[in-house]
């Protein structure tokens, strides 16, 4: 199979790999680069567990070919905590019991981060809309919505 080179910035560090042409970003991150925080729940764009941030936009890594990410800046949930300090969203997901099995959590946090990056003070409707592509089978969504709202509140208090 033809190998193609890819090079991108992942959570602040440079990555370069030769991958099989046609490899999804999800598989490249998990199997080649070793970042298993994006999860494969469906590999067909329906669950959101594989969500990552590419150049500031929320993307499904299972529907993104790795070779299209050359030169991109990619963020995953494993890169959010800085110096061992949890990101406010991670803190909020912990505090509001917004994770049970945790399989949807990295994708949820990615979707929530993109929302807060663009809309620092979202309404409940904004949050529901932003998470609408992410399926959780355990928590019942309400704690997740509360987590995002409380992270937004914590952010705005810090900013004030």
């Amino acid at each position: 199979m033809t190998k193609v080179p890819v090079q991108f910035t992942l959570n602040g560090s440079e990555k370069a790999e030769f991958i099989d042409s046609g490899t999804t970003l999800l598989n490249a991150l998990r199997d080649k680069i070793g970042d298993t925080s994006p999860k494969g729940g469906c590999h067909q764009g329906t669950c959101g567990a594989c969500s990552v941030i590419i150049d500031g936009e929320l993307r499904l890594s299972c529907l993104t070919l790795a070779e299209t990410c050359n030169g991109a800046t990619i963020t995953t949930t494993s890169g959010l905590a800085e110096g061992g300090v949890l990101h406010p969203l991670q803190r909020a997901f912990l505090d509001t019991f917004a994770t049970q099995c945790g399989f949807c959590t990295p994708g949820m946090i990615m979707a929530a981060k993109v929302l807060l990056d663009h809309t620092p003070n979202p309404s409940r409707e904004d949050v529901v809309e932003a998470l609408s592509g992410n399926i959780c089978r355990c928590t019942g969504y309400e704690p997740i919505i509360q987590a995002v709202l409380s992270a937004a509140r914590a952010n705005s208090q810090n900013a004030a």
């Binding site: 298993t36 912990l94 945790g102 959590t105 946090i109």
Partner: peptide, 23 residues
């Protein structure tokens, strides 16, 4: 009383190892 779950820190940081995270 709210008590933190022992597995949640792994979940929110993406560090929890599910079976398919082994390669």
């Amino acid at each position: 009383q709210p008590r933190p779950r022992s597995d949640s820190p792994g979940h929110v940081t993406g560090k929890t190892a599910y079976f398919a995270d082994r390669n």
